[in-house]
Every structure is written in C-alpha cells, then in structure tokens.
C-alpha cells in the first residue's frame, strides 16, 4: 500500500519558562489513499498537536522533529512557500469549533472561493460559482442565499459544512478533521459524519479523524491509532482494536464508553487517575500509574511499539487475544 501521508517519528516540544513540554513523542503513522484513520486519545494526548505540526500550523515556539511526507514530499522543515501551496490544496484541515473558525467579516461564499482563487488562480466570478456547487455538495440548504451571508447568520452545523466546503474546494487528497463534531448537537454530529463518509467515498480522499469519541471512530475509520501522553500506544484495524484491544489503555477506554446494548445495571468503568501532564516525565510506560495490569517492569522500562499477533502495541504485557474479550 502506498501511503498518502506518512508520519515518521514526529515529536513536538515546547520550551517554556516553566520547563519543557513534550506534547508529541515519536509518533509514526501511515494513511493510505481513500482510507480513514481514527486518531484517538484523551484531551492533551497530542492528537491535535501532531496534525497541526503536519500542517505547519503550530505556534512559532514549537520545536518539531521527525518527518511527515505527503505523497512522498516532505512537509516538515520545508520552505514555507512550498508548504503553503500544498496546504489548503492537497492537504486540508477542518477544526473543532465551527463557531469561531470562520472569519466574521467575510461572506461565506468568498471564504470558500478564496481558496480557489489563491491555489487555482480561478477568477472570483468562477470561484464563486464553484463555491455554490461546493455548498450544495456539503448539503447546505438554500445554498445560493448562503453565499452572501456572513458566518454569524448560520448555525453551528451549517458553519461546519462551510468549513468542509472550504477544505474540499481544491480537491485535497488528504483531509484532517480535528474533532469535527465535538461542538455540535448529537443529531448534527451524525449528519456531519455521514457527510464526511460520503465525500471520502466519492472523492477517494484520505481522512484523518481526530477524536476522543470511539463511537465516531467505529462508524467511520478503517484503522485506529491510539495516543496516550503524546505516544502511540496501540494501532490497528478498527475491527480488531474494538473487539480485542491489546493495550490495557485501549481496553479501559472501551470499558469507559456507554454502550446501547449493555444492561442498565452495568456500571461504567472510569479510568482511575488523570492523564499525565505533558510537563512531567513518567518513567517507564506512561500509562503504568493508572494501569490495572501494571507490573514492576512497567515503571522501569518504556515499552516500544511492536507487532504482536496482528496488533501494533506498546506494552510489556499486552492483553492476549484469547482473553481480550470484554467481559
């Protein structure tokens, strides 16, 4: 399989007056053409940071190392001008908060058209005509009227659709969606997700879906990468990972999710403790202070990501497939 996006040993760190913050540590992942990868983790696990680094959108004080190749072209550390030509054209991103992610003073149609004008040198007139088609594709009702409206005249779901239309304008090969539904109502969430699914299929576009919601991942993703404390702890196909999680963290995450088919009396199991702050360095496995299966070795030696029985997992004592059944 040829990877559309290959992230290799990516690390992001900040040197602050209060010490070094390690936001992302040695993250590698690959996304194939037309594939959807779910990137899962708690708040502060480094999901957004990793992909903002790929986009070159981190704050100037971020120190990024490692590599990220889009169709074989290195993105990190390249000439900003060359990166800008890819950004918004071949590689697009949508964000968590549609309420504040659109420029308040520019008409919706022009915000979509601008991408085309800048990247494809389309005339404004043609770009606006295309913007109308894009709005229709992302199922915005009354699209012609929306073109001349300002973002504050649109609902949150509509605005996220506009964000998607902006991202899709230049037909990207890779779309990064950073918690695209977190700020939306549940019913709107489902609409946006099925829209993303359809657009992916129609366009053969790869999708990186950053989320803390395993339910979202289950519905959309082919592969999943689980991040904990800025590191990949487990990766694999969505089927295997949801059925037979190999890392105790993944298993705990699944147990902590409400299930529609569980009996009402069954309590939800929370993961004890707090995820480590990226400022502190936990020795050994970063998850060991919260892990029910931890052994002395877990506190001393950091497990590396390795392949065991069809799963990529960073754990000294992965849950074996035989008793990986969630009971």
């Amino acid at each position: 399989m040829t990877a559309i996006l290959a992230v290799d040993a990516l690390s992001v760190r900040y040197e602050t007056p209060d010490g070094v913050v390690n936001a992302v540590n040695d993250v590698s992942l690959e996304i194939a053409a037309g594939e959807c990868i779910g990137v899962v983790g708690e708040s502060g696990a480094g999901k957004s940071q990793a992909f903002l680094a790929v986009m070159g959108l981190l704050a100037p004080n971020a120190k990024v190392s490692g590599g990220a190749k889009l169709r074989g072209r290195e993105l990190l550390g390249t000439d900003p001008r060359a990166l800008r030509e890819l950004r918004g054209a071949e590689l697009a991103m949508i964000f968590q908060d549609p309420m504040t992610s659109l420029a308040p003073h520019i008409k919706v149609g022009d915000q979509i058209a601008e991408t085309l004008v800048v990247h494809k040198r389309t005339s404004w007139r043609d770009a606006r005509a295309q913007a109308l088609k894009l709005l229709e594709q992302v199922q915005v009702t009354d699209a012609a009227r929306r073109l001349t409206q300002y973002p504050h005249e649109l609902s949150g779901g509509m605005r996220q659709r506009v964000m998607i239309a902006i991202a899709l304008a230049c037909d990207p090969v890779m779309l990064i969606a950073d918690e695209p539904t977190t700020a939306l109502d549940v019913s709107v969430q489902a609409q946006i997700l099925s829209l993303l699914k359809r657009l992916m299929r129609e366009r053969g576009m790869a999708l990186a879906l950053i989320t803390h919601d395993l339910g979202v991942v289950a519905g959309l993703a082919d592969h999943v990468t689980v991040l904990y404390a800025g590191r990949v702890v487990e990766a694999g196909t969505v089927r295997r990972l949801l059925k037979q999680p190999a890392h105790p963290y993944t298993a705990a995450l699944l147990r902590s999710m409400p299930r529609i088919d569980a009996s009402v009396s069954e309590p939800l199991v929370a993961i004890r403790g707090q995820p480590p702050s990226p400022r502190e360095l936990v020795g050994g496995c970063p998850f060991h202070p919260r892990c029910d299966l931890a052994q002395p070795r877990c506190a001393e030696e950091r497990p590396t990501l390795r392949s065991t029985a069809g799963a990529m997992v960073a754990c000294h004592f992965p849950i074996a497939a035989s008793h990986g059944d969630l009971s």
Binding site: L57, E85, G88, T100, L102, A103, E114, H119
Partner: peptide, 20 residues
C-alpha cells in the same frame, strides 16, 4: 481560530494579515 483557518487554507502571510 479563524486566522488559523486562513493559514490552513494556504494563504500567504500578507493575505492573512490584510484580508483576515
């Protein structure tokens, strides 16, 4: 956030500054 969106669209820094 909307300036981040403008940058994510691949606009030049001058365009981000003056238009957005």
């Amino acid at each position: 956030n909307f300036v981040r969106t403008a940058r994510a669209k691949g606009l030049s820094p001058l365009r981000v500054l003056f238009r957005h």
